[in-house]
Each structure stands twice: as C-alpha cells, then as structure tokens.
Amino acid sequence: MSNSHLFLKSGFPRAPLQNGLGRYVCQLQRITLKFCKNNGSSRGMRDFIENHLVDFAKENPGIVVYVKPRRHRTPVLVGEYLNGEREWLNCRNNTKDEISKWIELLKTQNGCSSSLRLRKMWHTDVPSVQGPWTPFLLRSPDANSIEYPNIDASKPLDIPKTATDKLIELFKKQKLEAGDGAEDLLKQKRAE
C-alpha cells in the first residue's frame, strides 16, 4: 500500500496575490512541450503540436509556448507559474486528447496542486460580521443579577408532573365546570 499520504503537506485554500479581487490573471506563464520526432511514445504529442498548438497559443496570448524536440526521450509537459513553481508531467504514450486535457489542467491551476491536502473548502478574512455566538447572546439581562445559590435557577427545566398534581388539577377543573351546584350537592352528602 502507498504511504505517500503520510508526509503529504496540508493547508488551507489560498489564491496568490489576491487574484480575482480586481481582475483575474492567468497564473501559468510558460509551457514547454518536449518530444521526440521519431519515437512512437511521442505520437500523441506530435499530433497535438500539428493540430492544436497554434490555436492554443493564439487563444492564450499571456502564455509563452516552447516546443523542444529531443531524440529518443519520452514526451514531457512542463508548466511554469507566476509563484515560481514548476510542474513536470510525463506524457508517454498519451493520445492527442489526453495531452490537450493535461494542458488545460496546467493552464487552469495556480501552481502544483498535487502536493497539498486541503483541510477546508473555505477561506475568509472576516470570520464573523455580527460577532461570534456566545451562550449569553439573546438572553435576559436578569440572569446577571441573580445571586447564587438560587432555588429557581438550580431546578431542572423539565420536571414532569406527578400523578398527585394531575389529580388535583383534574379535580379543580371539575369543580370549575360544575360551579356552585355541585358544592351544594357535596354539602348535602356530607350532612347525611
């Protein structure tokens, strides 16, 4: 099993130089395509250079494109970024489409992404606008002046009613409903 993740650096999302706040600046500055003119492993790279490279360069005037032929070596993509980082990609036996996909990735990222594990998907300079929550938020200020020990404040909030309480309540309710007539009846009964 791979243990490479054990020493992987971790961090938080950052963008270089406040990118995107005013305008967006593409971070890829230079891309180098290295390939062999004869070898089969470079075939996709050669196809890409023949068909799409000029279009890519025209679409992205901010990116310098170098093409470097070399004998009997695997094809390689190297991207160099504004923050000084340099990403090296092996493209051995890749097709034309795969190479255009990797070039797109090099273009859209800000630097080497493979070396950083993100701990959060959010970054902010202002964590709270209305102030962080505290247990005293939206509480009655009376709680400040209570003196302890206090019987009311020390009681649990959810004491269930006992059976006796329920009975007393029922009795009172009956009495109210029946009114005075019932009391007379009760008195009569007691007298008997």
Binding site: H5, Q109, N110, S113, S114
Partner: peptide, 11 residues
Amino acid sequence: VIEKTLTHTKT
C-alpha cells in the same frame, strides 16, 4: 472563478 485544479492523489 480563479482556479480549476485536481485534488491531491487519494489512495
């Protein structure tokens, strides 16, 4: 949108 990239390699 300021960056489109890939995550680190997850095993």
